[in-house]
């Protein structure tokens, strides 16, 4: 597998930045080179946040933002309304989406696959707060097969401990098992 570029869209406080790092850890556990960073201005809860994760077999030299992602992760469903959301998405691109509504029409010609789950509801049940990030990481693993659930869960333990770790392991595992995949032919 060649390297992949992932762009995450969320809002301050939902854990998009943390999700980007947790993903990097999961890929690193599988021996990949990784790089992940967020881009935002003033830190404020609720402000749109973009984060980036790269993984590759070879060393990652570039320290740039991601303009042509292989995969988009949308942590907050209201961000689907951003007109530039799908900008640069590669042909055959994947979307991992927190939403309770399936698409009735294909939102972007380059989009081949959507892994959709109502991650907010899952997070409310498992964590008791709207932190859908780890559920979506599980959904990514199931939808793409780029990384194993085992590595995802192991990655979580680098950031969380105690009951929060347990809750997020359940959150990610449910994302992995309950994600609904919708595909379009190219």
């Amino acid at each position: 597998m060649t390297g992949k570029e992932i762009r995450l869209h969320g809002r301050g406080g939902q854990g998009a930045v943390m999700a980007a790092k947790m993903l990097a850890s999961a890929f690193a556990i599988e021996g990949k080179s990784v790089a992940s960073f967020p881009m935002y201005g003033f830190e404020r809860r609720g402000m749109p946040v973009v984060a980036f994760t790269r993984f590759d077999e070879k060393p990652i030299l570039e320290k740039t933002q991601i303009y042509t992602p292989d995969l988009l992760m949308v942590v907050d469903p209201t961000l689907l309304a951003i007109s530039t959301l799908f900008d640069g998405l590669k042909t055959g691109g994947v979307l991992i989406l927190n939403s309770n509504k399936p698409f009735t029409t294909r939102p972007s010609a380059n989009l081949a696959k959507v892994g959709r789950i109502d991650a907010t509801s899952v997070a409310m049940e498992e964590i008791g707060r709207d932190i859908p990030n780890t559920c979506l990481i599980g959904a990514l693993a199931a939808t793409t097969g780029w990384v194993s659930l085992e590595s995802v869960l192991k990655g979580l333990s680098e950031y969380l401990e105690g009951s929060m770790l347990e809750k997020n392991i359940r959150n990610a595992t449910r994302g992995y098992k309950e994600v609904e995949v919708q595909s379009w032919d190219s």
Binding site: V17, A20, K21, A24, S25, A28, S33, V34, A35, S36, F37, P38, M39, I60, K63
Partner: peptide
């Protein structure tokens, strides 16, 4: 070191 591009960059 560069803010954001390195301060927030996670690498192994």
């Amino acid at each position: 070191y560069d803010g954001y591009y390195l301060s927030f960059l996670a690498e192994a």
